[in-house]
């Protein structure tokens, strides 16, 4: 079981969380054409290595937060609540 560092509750088993995938920046729905909106919806980087992603602590604080996780090793760096910037975050 990998452990996810919840910024509110500390490290917990991954089974307490829901995974919401890669963190991307959502375009304004009324400012993009359908093709760009679908690109945002579907096209993920799916990297083999470090990535920033969104998790939800369903069995704990019930908050969304971001973590950095290595998809090859499942190593995880500390989580942070939304609104706190990380140096490695990129928009997609």
């Amino acid at each position: 079981m990998i452990r996810i560092p919840c910024p509110n509750c500390g490290p917990r088993n991954s089974s307490e969380f829901s995974y919401f995938g890669e963190l991307g920046s959502r375009p304004a729905p009324d400012a993009v054409d359908p093709a760009h909106w679908r690109h945002y919806l579907y096209d993920k980087k799916n990297p083999a290595g470090w990535t920033t992603e969104k998790w939800y602590h369903a069995s704990g604080c019930r908050k969304f937060f971001a973590i950095e996780r290595n998809t090859l090793t499942n190593d995880v760096k500390s989580g942070r609540p939304f609104g706190v910037e990380s140096s490695s975050e990129e928009s997609s």
């Binding site: 995974y19 090859l72 499942n74």
Partner: peptide, 13 residues
């Protein structure tokens, strides 16, 4: 598995 990964390790859960 419930999250994306390229890891092919088995898990106890």
């Amino acid at each position: 598995d419930p999250y994306a990964s390229y890891s092919m390790r088995g898990s106890l859960e």
